[in-house]
Amino acid sequence: MLVFFYLFAAAAVLGALGVLLLRNPVYCALSLVATMSALGGVFILLNQEFVAAIQILIYAGAIMVLFLFVIMLLNLRSDEQFIARWNPGKVVGIAMALVILAQLVGVFTSASATLGPAGEYPAERIAKEGAVEIVGGLLVTQYVLPFEVASILLMVAIIGAVVIAKRQIAKPSQEGR
């Protein structure tokens, strides 16, 4: 089981490095799909089959297909200058990313970082009651307010995307321009 975790983790990191280093945006998107599928495997190993399913359905399925559609629609050329232009800002940026990595790893692996008291959902209870049932029950009881706010957020996003992305229709007041 640990071996599979390392396999999926290595695949996820490789895909992420592909997003960082590949030049063509289409290859970047496909690399990110690989990362998200590998993370789905990691979630299954962590006893969260429901999260793994929505990870693959929504992230790898829906969101990345949206990215690919936009890339195809815009017909981007892959002549991005990546390594050619090193400036001090980029060096500082890489240094900052490394500092963030060092700090996160340092905090996560430090001896004082211990987990708090265990909650009431061990793996046996999740396996017995079903992850979907537990998540659904919590969504309409304890987390009902965030759930409703999320629905409003989704509706705002749909309307906003339609308004922003549609072509400008010439209004009568703008016809003189």
Binding site: V13, L20, C28, A29, E80, K90, A97, L101, T109
Partner: peptide, 30 residues
């Protein structure tokens, strides 16, 4: 801890992508 280190590695790669890449869509993917 290993899961968290994986998370930190992915996050750092995402930060570098946002800083280094010049294509807006790739920045978005990061």
């Amino acid at each position: 801890t290993h899961v968290l280190v994986l998370s930190a590695a992915l996050f750092a790669i995402g930060v570098s992508g946002v800083i280094l890449r010049r294509n807006a869509i790739v920045v978005f993917m990061s």
